[in-house]
Design a protein around this nucleic acid. Structure first.
Length: 129
DNA sequence: CTTCTAACA
DNA sequence: TGTTAGAA
């Protein structure tokens, strides 16, 4: 598929899809006319990349994590970089923190929705009488 | 009409 | 990141 379709499928603007490529996150094939040609499997990959990017993980780290996203998790570590490990641990902890934050907000919203429903229910009763 | 690159705001 | 230019 071409960039427009992948953009619709993933919700990632074409501008960013080209940027991902520039960062080495994805390497689409090229058509005879020079247009980028994305395989269907890239839809899933782009969504995962976006998830990582949205989590605030720098692209250089994402490039290293990308292999872990592929189904066969045959992760072969050639260079055990202690600095990278440290960075990833920090990023993972930030993610956990963000998740906890989201869970709290979700619960708060859920409670508010329940209060809304109750209020609407009361209003309906009042209007009926 | 869609995409490409490069560059500006 | 959005947008715009001219070209394919």
């Amino acid at each position: 598929m071409r960039i427009g379709e992948l953009s619709k499928e993933t919700g990632v603007p074409p501008r960013m899809l080209r940027y991902y490529e520039e960062q080495g996150l994805i390497t689409p094939q090229r058509l005879d006319n020079g247009y980028r040609d994305y395989g269907d499997y890239l839809v899933d990959r782009v969504n995962k990349i976006r998830g990582l990017v949205d989590s605030g993980i720098p692209s250089r780290i994402i490039i290293d994590i990308l292999p872990c996203l592929d189904k066969p998790q045959t992760i072969v570590v050639r260079d055990a970089d202690p600095e990278l490990r440290d960075t990833l641990v920090k990023e993972r902890d930030r993610m956990s923190q963000k998740i906890d934050f989201l869970v709290q907000n979700r619960d708060a919203i859920t409670q508010y929705i329940e209060a809304l429903d109750a209020a609407m229910s009361d209003a309906r009763v009042a209007e009926a009488s």
